[in-house]
Design a protein around this nucleic acid. Structure first.
Lengths: 169, 169
DNA sequence: TCTGATATGGCAATCTATTGATGGAAAACC
DNA sequence: GGTTTTCCATCAATAGATTGCCATATCAGA
């Protein structure tokens, strides 16, 4: 290295790469840890209802105003939750077995199956509300609303980015 | 409601609660989606080595300068990855079966088992490096280094918060 | 009508993750 | 020495998640 200026110019991007790698490493470890803790603590929060975080997610999707009456197709649920069909089928099976959800072959396209909350499912979803609210409050107690929005936006972009990588199927 | 000012004062915090609940809902859904996509795309990225994201995480922990020689105890690995002992045991078993990791009962406290990379494990970890770098680069291509740090810090706090909820064991 | 694409279900294999219970070995404490 | 605690392993059960493959019903277009 005879030219110190050239060395600096060459080193600057390398340092940035090293820094980015280090940050990425930590970032994905935190994502891994947070996700595991989410399932652990979240499932505990609704364990009194015999539910899990995944079932909670499915029921939450089906309970939304636009989905309450007609339900959602399996394909729509897959797009919403971003899980595999085989996985979702098993979750739905358990919810059906518990009487919280029903499969309907409604109208138009005969290939589609609509998944909808049952009466019992809607009742239980309502009963789970306070537990879910309390969980959110405890989990985000140290975050301002603005910070929550910030984290949401960053995770939203990360999800899109990862989804783009996954897309080829 | 006879006093419009009182109505406003009463409504403001309720609106904030509703907003926070909505943001929390979206936030945790993104966390759930991102985590699933992380495992899906990450495992694909190192599938040529027959590895998974979890095995990658364990090997990464063991490959760090401070751990390379003496390894880490199971307890230390549990604290680092924040998973259950029973789960970690199974992951380590698979790594041992693949010859990438070894269990040692070294020195001092006879109860402790040190988990360490084997020669083959260190070799493979080195070989996985470029694939991991490429994965990080693709996953975070649209994030500035500053944004990566921001996301890391928020996830770090979220992890701590969730861990505090989980702590009672 | 034939053909292909789509939506779902079923089955199998593998891995991850939790909880719960049991047990052994070693350390620490009284 | 005896009791308690800690660290680790193991077995079992349940749930979540992926991949891959096959089957069926339906739709859409040539």
């Amino acid at each position: 290295m005879e030219n110190p200026v050239a060395a600096l110019l060459a080193q600057a991007p390398r340092d940035d790469d090293a820094a980015r790698f280090d940050v990425a490493n930590r970032l994905f470890l935190r994502l891994y840890q947070s996700s595991n803790l989410l399932h652990k603590t979240g499932t505990r929060a609704v364990s009194a209802f015999g539910a899990t975080t995944q079932q909670w997610a499915v029921m939450g999707a089906l309970a939304r105003p636009g989905s309450r009456d007609t339900g959602l197709t399996v394909k729509e649920l897959i797009a919403f939750l971003m899980v595999s069909r085989q996985n979702l089928t098993a979750v739905i099976d358990r919810l059906v077995a518990a009487g919280l959800v029903e499969r309907l072959r409604a109208g138009g396209d005969g290939r589609l199956r609509h998944v909808r909350l049952t009466e019992e499912g809607a009742r239980q979803w309502g009963a789970m509300g306070p537990a879910i609210r309390a969980y959110y409050q405890a989990a985000l107690a140290e975050f301002s609303t603005e910070e929550c929005v910030q984290l949401f936006r960053l995770l939203d972009r990360l999800r899109d980015s990862l989804n783009r990588i996954a897309e080829p199927e």
